[in-house]
Design a protein around this nucleic acid. Sequence first.
DNA 1: TTTGATGTTATTTTTATTATAACAACATAT
DNA 2: ATATGTTGTTATAATAAAAATAACATCAAA
Lengths: 144, 144
Amino acid sequence: MKYPTRLSDAVHILAFIALYPDCDLTSNKLAESVQTNPAYVRQLMSALRKGGLLVSVKGHPRPALAREPEKITLLDAYRAVEGNKPLLHQDIHTNPACGVGVNIQLVLRDFYLDIQKTAEHKMQEITLKDVLEQYHIKLEGIHT
Amino acid sequence: MKYPTRLSDAVHILAFIALYPDCDLTSNKLAESVQTNPAYVRQLMSALRKGGLLVSVKGHPRPALAREPEKITLLDAYRAVEGNKPLLHQDIHTNPACGVGVNIQLVLRDFYLDIQKTAEHKMQEITLKDVLEQYHIKLEGIHT
DNA sequence: TTTGATGTTATTTTTATTATAACAACATAT
DNA sequence: ATATGTTGTTATAATAAAAATAACATCAAA
């Protein structure tokens, strides 16, 4: 595969937009910071828009947050770009004729849901505001 | 397919071994239940052995748990087969010349570690004993 | 009207994961 | 001792998810 970095890139984009609210932010400029191509950035922004986190209009390089940073959580961003993809994956190709394997996978399903819920709860507690705050603290630390 | 299922398969194998403690369990039989090939099973078992969860000897098809099921957690199994691989992945290819991006990724790192810790704590609370207990409960539900 | 950007779709490339093959080393039974 | 079967390990191939890229119609603004 290739490890998914959509959430990281999405937060990167959201933070960048929050930091430069009144500037022309083309997908090209954002792509430079993420070091990727503009089309990928636009794809992520499309997902964020559909997720209700971002507003933007075709042809106009002025994306803006759809709501305040304190009301945008990491879980919101995750849902927008990853949907309901779980963090841990079951093996859905085990032998259906083997009752043992089938039932073990059924049990694992419940435990994975539990873990997922726990992680998502944490992700829901972290907002874009938190990210921006820590960002500024990091910046101050550098300039002193 | 191609999402990682090593943890799922590892637990599958561990549970199977726990359920049939005094039987010949060849990698072939286990592979039938997981519906994969014996070599992959042996690779997972090798990781579990190195992780101290399993004991087995070359040429002898009698794998056994290295310790009681209540002392084997999902986190133990995860560490054995996934090492320190995180659940969420940072984008480590952002533009190093862009201070904004660099610092956002640094901040994300801390938050991801927080989420990771939370998930791992939950994984540590779930033992193979729990899996086996739920397995038996599921079985009873079927036979009544 | 021209320029430049977006939003979207389709295709290619990359790479982590699983599948598979091959074989030396070991256990067991005869 | 030998034959048989299994493990442990390594190397390579196949698969599939993610990111990279290309292409273009559509829209905004000067």
